[in-house]
Structures are given as C-alpha cells and as structure tokens.
Amino acid sequence: MITGRGLATVAALLLLSGCVSTAGSQGPVVSTPTVGEFAGLLHDFGHKTRIGTDDAGDPMLMVNEGGDNFIVYFYDCDGSGGGTERRCTGAELNVSYPGKTVTLDRINEINRTYRLAKAYVRDSGDPALSMALNTGGTFAGGHVTDSLEWWQAAMRGFEEDIGWKK
C-alpha cells in the first residue's frame, strides 16, 4: 500500500526541488489523492459528481457528464467506510448499457483492439465498458484530464460499436 501525502506537502517539496515548472501547465499536483481530491479533479474537467457507497462499503462517485452517467469505483484504499478522506491507489471508470446484447466474440474483438478501455458482459447480460486509472504515487491534474478525454473517446467508440442509441 502506498501512503499518500498531502497536496500542500507535495507542492512544497516540488518547489524546493525546482520541479514545479513542469507541473505548472499540468494543473495541481496530487499524491495518491483522497476520493474527495479525485472528485475535485473531475470537477475541474467539468463533471458533476455525487459520492456514494459501493457494495463493499467503499466510496464511489456517480458522475454526470453532459447526459452521460458513469461510476468511479476505488480500489486499494486506506482506512474504511465510504468517506471522501480515504486514499486509494486505483480508480475504475465504469458504464453499462442495460438491455443491449453483445456476444462474447464481439467483446473479445473489442478488447483486442481498444487501447485503454476494456469491455465485458455483466452477469445480468448487460455490456459494460471500463477503464482503470492508477492513482497511486504523484501525478498532475492534467494527467487525469488526459485520461478523461481517453474515456470519453472510448465511450463514444463503444456506443457506436454496439449500436447504442441514447
């Protein structure tokens, strides 16, 4: 488990080491961010979020992005409970498409060709798209922005591939 550091501490260290310049254009620097800090990065991207609790009792974020709804699950979190102060080394962006049928052969083909996201079929039969983000260690907010752009492109591509109409 990677122990996170506070934003202010990391920023101070970066200033002292003279490395803050490269991060300047890449947004705030975080280190294994809390769920709340991660939600802040989503807000910076223009997403609205609501905090919730998943089946395991861990925090999750429900995201609304211009008519799209997806969920962010968190993994390898310190502490316990569904609060926003927990630090997690992994996050998963996840969306499912109820009522749509996609064969496992097609899912396999999608997984062979997609770059950062993956697809699977839930026990319910609904297809789902997922993209994991490492959130352990130190990184800039701009990195999350870039990942969210990948995620938006993946959702659009998947919806086209499975013939999903809103």
């Binding site: 890449q26 950062l116 490492n134 352990g136 990184f139 800039a140 701009g142 990195h143 990948w150």
Partner: peptide, 24 residues
C-alpha cells in the same frame, strides 16, 4: 491468451506513479 494492462503516462506523472503501476 493475452493479458494486457494499459496505463496512460501523459501530462504529468512521476517515478512514484510508475512504482504504483508496477504494483498493480
């Protein structure tokens, strides 16, 4: 069978980020 783990490294990461990636 192929197992892949794609990771984005664009726009500001660190060696500690790579450390965590390798743990995953």
């Amino acid at each position: 069978v192929a197992l892949e783990m794609p990771i984005n490294l664009a726009d500001g990461v660190s060696i500690s980020y790579l450390d965590s990636t390798l743990e995953w």
